[in-house]
Structures are given as structure tokens and as C-alpha cells.
Simulated scan of single mutants.
Amino acid sequence: MISRRNIRVKVMQALYSVESQETNEKPNDPFKLLQKHFDQTHQLFVYLIHYLTEVARYAEIDARNRAGKHLPSYEDLNVNIKLAGNELLWKILEYPSYQKAVKETRPELLENTDLLRKLYHQLVETDKYQQYIAVAGRDKKEEKAMLEFIFNELLLPNESFTSFVEENFTNWDDDADMLRLLVQNFLNKPSSFNFQELISKEKWLFGKGLLETVLNKKEVTMEHIKPKLKNWDPERIAVLDMILMRMGVCEFLYFETIPPKVTINEYIDLAKEYSTPQSGQFVNGILDNIHKDLVKDEKMHKVAFKPSSSN
């Protein structure tokens, strides 16, 4: 479910942490760093689903609060709580894999009751919500559409909500686009998701293999990179740019199933997004030249580097 692009980002971040570490510090375990990045994505995904369900369930809390007033009105005593009984909502809440994930990650510890209340009341004022509660029966498509509306039209555009998420999850900027898609896919087929395996074994092996290859083949990759730097001093090149180029060269040489063009495009995009304004063009030029030389010298016969069985 996690894309290869997202895996590359997390490998890049793990490598950057290792490369930027002071020499007198105890070295970080790069594989534990990588696992930590994946764990953060898992925690954030569970939190987003949790918050979505909490907004929907707030209908019952609102009804109790209004009924408990000193002098409740007729409207206070007859709050529509259809949303709290949303069939898809309860399918999610009763899903064993999700229940286990909630127990493990404890998303309720980050509860913001005031924000939750405000978001619910904003929801109540929308035409979509009023149309939803106006229909007495339940329709599967409308049940799903209501939860999609809450997530896509209420939560994500709300600056208070996204700021709160960003404050508590440093990976929000990196994972936001992917998690939007994951949440949508989950709402389409919740029972097909295994919260305990958000990243497949194949994807984990790709990430672990890429990380280990870049670490173990540093000298090999630098032999390809240094001749292309011309007047550039390798020590003055941005650390992130060098990491991205080393990752790219490793994919050229050791990852048989990845087309070189895909590799180049991926690292151009990552350089543009995470490094300097000039990095995209710089990384593009170096990787493209290295690729052309490998093809010319008939050295594009990829041989998979075999990572160790540990970690």
C-alpha cells in the first residue's frame, strides 16, 4: 500500500540521519531508523481513521450534552444521531485489525476535544449533512459518501486540524498525499486492509535492500559520480544531493526490475522537493550522464546486491 516513492523518501531520510551524524556520537542503526519512519506512517494512518470515526461518533455526545441542559428545548431533546450509527463507521470500529492497531498505537492520547467539537458543529451546518440526516433509511453508497465527505471536505481543508496533525506527526508533509489515497482505499474496502502489514514484505525488502546497498556500495557509486562533477568539489555538494545520486546509481546497477528512466525521474522529483532549487537539474544531469556511460560501456547488466539476512 505504501508507494515506492514513499519508501525512497524514508530511505533517503535514514541515510541523511546517518550521514549528518557527528563522528563522536554513537552511530545510529540505519535499519532501526528506517523502521521508525515506517512506524510513524502506520501511526499516522491509524490516527486519521480514528479521528474520522470520532467526528462521526460525536453526534451521540452532542445529543447527550444538549439533552442534559437545564432547560432543554424540543430540538435539544430530538437531535438526529443517524451519523453515529453509520453502517460503514461501525464496520470500521468492529474490524479486528483496526481494533488491534488502535490498542497498539493509542490514538486517543492525542485527542483534542475542543477541535473535535468545532469540526462536528461545522459538519452539522453543511448541506451534505442536512441532506444525509433528512433520509430515514440507510444506503451503502450514501453511508460511504458521508464518511468520505467528512475526511476530504471537512478535515483535510481545515487548517486547525492539519496544523494539529503536523504538530504531532513530523511525517505529515511527507506522507499526506499517500495517506489521502490510503484512507480512500480503506473506505472503499475496509476489510481488505491489514493494519499490521501496512507495508508488504516485498516493499520492506525493497526499502531495506536499497538502504543496505547504498551503505555498502558507497565507494562503487562514488567512482561513477566523481568523474561527472567536473569543477564541483564533492565535499561542497549538498549532502542530500549526494545521497540521492548514490541511491540512483545503486538502482542503475543493482535493482533489475526498475527501469533507469523511472529511477532518474524519481530522484529528480525528490531533489526538487527536498533539496535546493537547483538540485533537480543538477541530479538529473549527473544521473543521466552516468546512465549514458553505463549503456555505452555495456555495463547496464544489473546484478542484484544481496543484502544480509539480518536486520
Rank of each mutant, 00 (worst) to 15 (best):
H121T: 05
S3F: 03
E22H: 14
E266G: 00
N284V: 04
H224E: 10
E159A: 10
F206P: 01
P107M: 10
R4P: 01
P259F: 11
I286R: 04
A84M: 12
R117E: 12
K10A: 01
A63Y: 03
G280Y: 09
K141A: 12
V220Q: 09
D39Q: 15
E166K: 07
D173R: 11
Q13K: 11
K91N: 14
N216C: 08
A134D: 08
K140F: 09
E298N: 13
L48M: 12
D297L: 11
E266I: 00
Q122L: 01
K230P: 01
L155C: 02
V303D: 02
E148M: 04
R5F: 13
S309Q: 03
L287K: 00
L187H: 13
R57W: 04
I243D: 04
K228G: 02
L294Q: 14
Q196E: 08
L229K: 00
D127G: 06
Q35V: 08
N231L: 12
K296I: 03
C250D: 01
L211V: 01
K32F: 03
V283G: 11
P307K: 10
E219W: 07
H50E: 09
Y47G: 00
V9G: 00
V303I: 03
E197V: 05
Y47H: 13
H224G: 04
L229F: 11
F206D: 07
A101G: 07
D174T: 11
E251Q: 14
K226Y: 10
D127H: 13
T276K: 14
K208V: 06
E104P: 01
F252P: 01
Y74V: 09
N311V: 08
E104S: 14
S160K: 09
I268K: 10
P96E: 11
T221P: 00
S310W: 09
R5Q: 10
S160R: 13
D233F: 05
E256F: 10
S310A: 03
I199Y: 02
H121M: 13
D297S: 10
Y132F: 15
G85F: 12
W204Y: 09
L210G: 00
Y129G: 04
E202G: 02
K230T: 03
A84P: 02
Q281C: 14
V124D: 04
I2G: 01
N284G: 02
L229Y: 05
A56E: 13
Q35I: 14
E22F: 11
Q21M: 08
M242E: 09
F31Q: 08
Q35K: 15
V165F: 11
M1F: 09
L244H: 01
L123S: 04
T23N: 12
N112E: 15
S275K: 04
D175S: 14
V239G: 07
N188T: 03
E25Y: 03
K228T: 03
Q35S: 06
E60W: 05
L240D: 12
K82M: 11
F164N: 04
Q130S: 07
G137R: 08
W204Q: 06
L93T: 07
R180I: 14
H291D: 13
Y51W: 10
A136W: 05
L77P: 13
K217E: 07
K201F: 00
F255C: 03
D127V: 14
E125I: 06
S160H: 11
